[in-house]
């Protein structure tokens, strides 16, 4: 009985196409039950995330049955950029997906949980059987194996996650750290949210427009202060995220040095996301102060991304071995499509 994987993802379909086919999580149990009741399909799992819609089905003739069900459900006409994999190639593709190799951010781990949820929904709806149970359960083992034996998920790949990683290497536990936002830009807000998600408390927001500061502070359960008052807060702050629109530098050594004496050796981490820069580079020469501007953060994220790219070959070798270990899912002998669809 063939197993087919049919779908589209961020690599071959733009968001306008993906959003037309997206399944809301509350609709998934009914949808997967409807799909598996189609002629030619005996087992089915639907994986629907913001970056991919993939249908795994087993049956006598699953591929045409899945496509016609999709066209009927979403009233589609014309060609859609579906990819199709069968048997071993479908297994390879699923293993690559759960390992984060086919994700927009290479090596990200969220997809592992999303596929697990999709399988769990299908399993509780009674739409999985011997083939898909074996395939999905094995894929979770492969996902763990790839992550544990390669560096595909090591390091941080976004400015926000690099900031969090650095903060943890400066302070250790972030639970007691206090964060101050200078300027209320979107990127600094996201950076602060990343720190908050790791336990940072006491967010202080200072902005030239006080109303905007109050608004952002309320959103982040923090406290707003007038822009003139920020230098007085430095002694009590551990992380400063600066992203003002000022055409000149805002933070100088004179602001930091007096505060350091009162910090009694506690370090100060300054993230300067603004362009032009908000922080005088001389601040980095002060002992105990670590200054990172947007280029420094991007450069670290870029190094990690490059290192992850280098790991792809090792991950694919593991996946190939694991597919070989499944006699029910042998890959096509020649011209097997790549299990991942990364943009060149």
């Amino acid at each position: 009985m063939p197993v087919v994987c049919l779908g589209l993802s961020h690599s071959n379909a733009p968001v306008e196409v993906r959003e037309r086919l997206a399944f809301a999580s509350r609709d998934l149990p009914d949808a997967v039950a409807s799909l598996s009741s189609q002629q030619g399909i005996s087992e089915a799992v639907i994986v629907s995330t913001c970056n991919r819609i993939e249908i795994y089905a087993a049956g006598d003739s699953p591929s045409p049955a899945v496509e016609s069900w999709l066209r009927l459900r979403f009233q589609l006409d014309g060609d859609l950029p579906f990819f199709r994999h069968t048997d071993g190639d479908a297994a390879s593709h699923l293993f690559a997906v759960v390992s984060g190799l086919d994700s927009m951010v290479l090596g990200e781990t969220e997809i592992f949980g999303q596929v697990k949820d999709a399988y769990s929904t299908a399993h509780s709806s009674g739409t999985t059987g011997r083939l898909l149970n074996k395939l999905f359960q094995h894929s979770f083992r492969v996902g763990k194996m790839v992550r544990n034996s390669t560096d595909i998920q090591r390091g941080s790949t976004s400015v926000g996650s690099v900031a969090v990683e650095l903060a943890e290497k400066i302070f250790g536990d972030l639970k007691e750290t206090r964060v101050m936002l200078l300027g209320a830009g979107d990127m600094s807000r996201r950076c602060a949210q990343s720190l908050q998600s790791r336990g940072a408390s006491a967010i202080v927001v200072s902005n030239r427009s006080y109303d905007r500061a109050v608004e952002l502070a309320a959103e982040m359960s923090g406290r707003a202060i007038l822009f003139d008052a920020w230098p007085a807060e430095v002694a009590e702050t551990d992380v400063i995220i600066s992203s003002t629109a000022a055409p000149h530098t805002v933070i100088h050594p004179d602001h930091v040095l007096p505060a350091l004496r009162r910090r009694r050796g506690r370090p100060l981490f300054i993230i300067d996301i603004a362009v032009p820069r908000d922080v005088d580079p001389a601040v980095n020469n002060i002992p105990g102060v670590y200054l990172y501007d947007i280029d420094a953060l991007e450069s670290i994220a870029g190094e990690t991304r490059a290192r992850r790219e280098q790991e792809i070959a090792r991950c694919l070798a593991i996946i190939k071995d694991q597919v070989r270990s499944l006699p029910l899912f042998q890959p096509s002998p020649d011209g097997a499509p790549s299990p991942i669809h990364r943009p060149a």
Partner: peptide, 17 residues
């Protein structure tokens, strides 16, 4: 940490604080 390099080593060493 000051020189913004060697993240591979930085990750393995304990936090400065």
């Amino acid at each position: 940490l000051k020189r913004h390099r060697g993240m591979q080593v930085v990750r393995h060493l304990p936090p400065v604080h």
